[in-house]
């Protein structure tokens, strides 16, 4: 994985006043401002009056109250088993 790739961001949209933000997917952006702009283009198709939240995927902490979590992951983990969420020191190859 190239270090030059833009990080992954999770996108949450509130489509109407009175509703809460809903997770709609993810996208790549170099910074938060770009993530918001891109989220608007991709997930709202120019709709008015909506609220967008973005957060870098690696910053989200997940808990899974599922029995498998005890066996394979620590109680709180990353949201995806994505290789880029884990920092591997330089010089380590094949990972």
């Amino acid at each position: 994985m190239s270090s030059k790739d833009w990080p992954l961001w999770e996108v949450f949209i509130r489509s109407k006043q009175g509703l809460s933000h809903k997770h709609v997917g993810s996208l790549r952006a170099a910074d938060a401002q770009m993530a918001i702009d891109n989220a608007r283009d991709v997930y709202t198709r120019r709709s008015e009056g909506i609220s967008i939240w973005v957060i870098e995927s690696k910053l989200v902490t997940a808990s899974d109250p599922d029995e498998s979590a005890e066996f394979f992951e620590p109680a709180e983990s990353k949201i995806y088993r994505h290789p880029t969420f884990y920092n591997v020191p330089d010089g380590i190859s094949h990972m």
């Binding site: 190239s2 790739d5 992954l8 997917g25 993810s26 995806y80 088993r81 994505h82 290789p83 880029t84």
Partner: peptide, 20 residues
């Protein structure tokens, strides 16, 4: 393009690296 993005996004949840 948006569909491609939704799908890459779904694949990323499985550990796929989009650029790779």
């Amino acid at each position: 393009a948006g569909h491609g993005l939704y799908l890459y996004s779904a694949a990323e949840t499985l550990g796929l690296d989009r650029e790779k």
